[in-house]
Design a protein around this nucleic acid. Structure first.
Lengths: 249, 249
DNA sequence: AAGTGGTCTAGACCACGGA
DNA sequence: CCGTGGTCTAGACCACTTC
């Protein structure tokens, strides 16, 4: 196989895409097509170079770029793999609510309930659904050492995950589950944080007085092809916890 | 000049540092020493390669790494520059409070007051100060089109910025100012978000009823050498605004 | 036209992990 | 031991900016 020449007449702007970028896109699309699934090993650099008709150094540049984006994992002496959910959780603290003065810690999960519902308005707009689409709603608590730290509402569209309509309880690690069942991994996410008075339900679950100020984190997770596939609401009191984000410029 | 051989007997673990990493550290330290200041142009790749006694490709790898960390800016046909504050603000949305359903937008600033104080407890721990250290406190409002969106308390230690003790009002773009005056640029930051009832002062400034639930963002900015040099508290109501964070895995 | 960074190649050698 | 990715080099050519 060989890559396209550098000028294209499709768009208005002729698109100049360097070889390493083209290789990157090719690899990405094979992952999207599930030719290569999470955990799979890719051919080595020289095989890929042959296949794409470029030099090994060019392939290397693509693989390293995808590794930095978190799509691939490279292990010296072993090979290059499609990243699994578990690989990603090491780097970025999956769950953003942490104890004051601490780094992210592992949480326990206490299941409350799960139901299939029609998508409400917020879900329709954020997950690109319409009013006839259904979602699985999961409600559960996050706990650090007997201390209830947050309540989560998780919404998964049946459009993408049809088998969830049966009432089998999902495992605690939902993203792990979605990855093994649907080869769906998080590629990026958007968090919006607001302050809101605690409502009846959440107050009970968190063990706080109604109208206590809580933070409400709205999290939307998207896959590699930019499909938003999960909507999540997280409620937490912030006497002992906070939402945390650390960034490098 | 030439770099150290790959094995060192200083630490407990013999440290193997690849050449490109050593070059990276060298360049970083020259920036810290203010040999190269924000906005300065670096020598070209071949000059640096000569100077460090490595090949041009190795220097390139270092420069690209530092570019991705936001420390340098490279412009084809022109040269490689030490990043300025203005370069950084383009990539990462400096100010994290945005209107609902929007991307980050430019805000106006309304000055309220500024005072020199002794550092309180939170400041002492977070900025590594002691009780005799003084800070400049700046209080001001953030405004989107006549709509007050947030109140900011900004704390700058006189330890790092001694000339601020005179009562001259600082310009709106504080980071721009700190960069030109002190060659101090943000390298990373930590945000902690909590929910809190609005107090008397903030209620007035934001124009909300006392005890309205607000978000409180505690932001600590650090420089390239990991010195935390600014502590900031941001208060905002979240009927029309929210704290936003977008991340790629 | 001169000088910069950007892309691409080809090949050498090293370090690591597993059989 | 072999095969993998990691580092490093040297050199060619391209694209962009400035003069």
């Amino acid at each position: 196989m060989s890559l396209s020449s550098n000028s294209s007449s499709k768009g208005k702007q002729p698109v100049f895409m360097p070889l390493y970028k083209q290789v990157e896109e090719q690899i990405k699309s094979r992952i999207l097509n599930k030719e290569w699934k999470p955990g799979d090993v890719l051919p080595n650099e020289f095989s890929l170079a042959d296949e794409f008709g470029v030099s090994q150094g060019t392939v290397r540049k693509s693989l390293n770029a995808l590794t930095m984006q978190g799509t691939l994992i490279r292990r010296q002496g072993v090979g290059t793999f499609v990243a699994e959910q578990s690989d990603k959780q090491e780097n970025t603290s999956q769950f953003p609510i942490v104890r004051n003065g601490r780094r992210p810690e592992k949480t326990e999960i206490a299941f409350i309930r799960q139901t299939v519902k029609f998508a409400g308005l917020a879900l329709q707009t954020q997950l690109k659904l319409d009013s006839s689409d259904k979602v699985l709603e999961i409600v559960r608590k996050r706990i650090f050492r007997q201390q209830i730290c947050a309540v989560e509402y998780i919404y998964l569209p049946l459009k993408y995950f049809p088998e969830l309509s049966n009432n089998a309880k999902l495992p605690d690690d939902i993203h792990q589950f979605l990855q093994t069942q649907y080869s769906m991994t998080i590629h990026n996410l958007v968090d919006e944080v607001r302050a809101t008075p605690s409502n009846q339900d959440v107050s009970q679950w968190l063990g706080v007085k109604p109208n206590t100020p809580l933070i409400e984190v709205t999290r939307i997770c998207s896959s590699l092809d930019e499909t938003p596939f999960e909507y999540r609401l997280i409620y937490s009191q912030t006497d002992n916890f906070h939402y945390r984000h650390e960034g490098t410029y």
